[in-house]
Amino acid sequence: MLLNPFTYHAPSSVKQAAKLYATLADVKILAGGTIVLNTLKKLKQNGAKTPENIISLKKIKALQTICTQKSIITIGSMATCRDIIHSKELKKDCPLLIAVAQNIATTQIRNMATIGGNITGRFTWTEFQTPLVALDAKLHFVTKTGKEKIINAESFFKQNAKTSDILEKITFKAPQDVCFVYKRIPKRAEPDIPIFSICLRASVKKGTFQNVCVAINNAKSFARKDTKIEKTIAKLKTNDKAGTNLLKTLDLSRYAKDGDYKQAVISSTLKNTLNELIAQTK
């Protein structure tokens, strides 16, 4: 399908991109393009209007780096899933993100899709949301005046990923003494977008769960912490029955209707996630 015409802009710096973004009318950011260009085609197919301007961040090389300094991991917003999967820094300091990236879409999409595009594309089901919430990551934006604006990942998704600034990088502290488990439920058959994903973070000390964080994305809304599940887990003992006990008191009706297939699968996913975390800590 040929795309509807638009004006293509390729700024060479983030500051330039942010300024352009603020001044141009009817504009979309192209950060990888796997979501945006596909959306443009769908809009054209439905006879809907498509943007007049596209700002591509492709030529800003500085946005593609991944590095660790003084146990702070920095990931440029234009780092692709592939960059994340092959990153030596992340393999050492945060293999969780690699596990998440490996499940995203297909090989070609992983070669093209960026972490920045994934979380700022305003699609609720995108997969880097839950791990970034569980990592308490900070999102560094550049405003139209060139200033840096930092917002916590959890807060960003609470405001439905709305922003008029350009995402430059993501930072978080390299996790220590804590385990992560990430699980997702594909919509149909793999490879597929998830209908539900969970990132569980906790450490186990003296038979109890500590520093529990449960980031959930049920695909219909952006990722957020589920404090009810966190509190429930914090009360459990770390034995073989933990997963079953978790389900005893949980009310999952906010994620899926009672008796629905989705709720049954979410239940078993939660149970398996907790059991896997316990296994990791042994």
Partner: peptide, 11 residues
């Protein structure tokens, strides 16, 4: 193809 799923290499 997103909603009419075909067998793929991984399946």
């Amino acid at each position: 193809f997103a909603n009419y799923r075909l067998p793929r290499s991984v399946s």
